[in-house]
């Protein structure tokens, strides 16, 4: 099906500049079309294959190598996961930390994003690059370095400590992406609203903020996922008192049957998939890409 669409899409563009050449090049186009279809299938196998393979495992009872399908099916592993108290607590912890992280990060970063977009102040570019440099330091190394400070400030095994680790991982998203979104709001619109007698605050909340909202939304979702996905720092700071879903996943993989980890993986992926589907249009639409160019 994809092949047919490809041919029809390519046809008009082909015929316009060189009608005489159309015939010999058509077979070449068919070969290229076939090649791209094969490459697309390989890419699909590469991307989707591992996920399907893992997903099937969550319902597998017995599975003999080299069969491509389990011999028998069961929902037993789902009961194991839902019956396990520790796993339930991990789910709760994750659902507690991720929204809180987004909130704290938004309060801290959004005003800064606006300032970076709208004001020229000394050291502006230095700070933007500083944000990026902070991102270049290896995460594991940072957590090792943080450990010394956290011991001294008594933040080890504390909610505040975990929250700090999570917020640190979201700063780049929460500053850069909304900053690009604020910068993209035309100043002429804001000025027009001012001329019509709107106060500065009114202009911000009625013009600037609604127009920048898609960018802020993408930033919030990326931050939510960053927090939801964070494992190394949480493990170092919070384990074993505060286990989140990803840190629980570490021990699941080592201590439980494969199928339990598969079930847990599906559960862990649900919020990410739901959120990203909701914001899919804006992420593909370039809000994310726009944010990663320092201006």
């Amino acid at each position: 099906m994809a092949q047919a669409t490809l041919e029809s899409a390519a046809a008009p563009r082909e015929s316009a500049p060189a009608p005489a050449e159309a015939k010999p090049r058509r077979s070449g186009k068919a070969a290229t079309g076939l090649l791209t279809t094969v490459l697309a299938l390989l890419l699909a196998l590469f991307i989707i294959g591992p996920l399907v393979w893992l997903g099937v495992r969550a319902f597998a009872d017995t599975w003999t190598y080299p069969h491509l399908w389990p011999d028998s099916w069961t929902t037993h592993w789902w009961q194991v996961v839902f019956g396990d108290k520790a796993l339930g607590v991990a789910v709760q912890n994750s659902l507690f930390f991720a929204p809180l992280t987004v909130l704290v990060s938004a309060v801290i970063c959004l005003p800064a994003a606006y300032a970076f977009a709208r004001f020229e102040f000394p050291g502006r570019r230095f700070f933007l690059i500083g944000l990026f440099a902070a991102n270049a330091f290896p995460k594991m190394g940072l957590f090792v370095s943080l450990a010394a400070l956290f011991y001294a400030l008594n933040l080890m095994n504390s909610i505040l400590g975990i929250l700090i680790v999570h917020v640190l991982g979201t700063i780049v998203f929460m500053t850069w992406i909304p900053s690009a979104a604020f910068a993209a709001v035309p100043r002429s619109l804001e000025e027009a609203a001012r001329d019509a007698g709107a106060s500065k605050l009114r202009v911000f909340f009625s013009v600037t903020l609604p127009m920048a909202l898609p960018g802020i939304l993408v930033a919030a979702i990326m931050s939510f996922l960053a927090s939801f996905d964070e494992a190394q720092g949480t493990y170092l700071v919070g384990a074993p008192d505060y286990m989140t879903m990803p840190t629980q996943m570490y021990s699941l993989v080592l201590n439980y049957p494969t199928q339990v980890a598969a079930v847990f993986s599906i559960l862990l992926a649900i919020p990410s998939v739901a959120l990203l589907l909701a914001a899919h249009k804006h992420i593909i639409g370039g809000q994310l890409a726009e944010g990663f160019q320092i201006k």
């Binding site: 939801f228 990803p246 996943m249 993989v253 992926a269 990410s272 990203l276």
Partner: peptide, 17 residues
Amino acid sequence: LAVVPLFIPVVIASWAI
């Protein structure tokens, strides 16, 4: 297809792969 991995936490991706 290329954007799908963005939806999946890295821990799960590693495990699946």
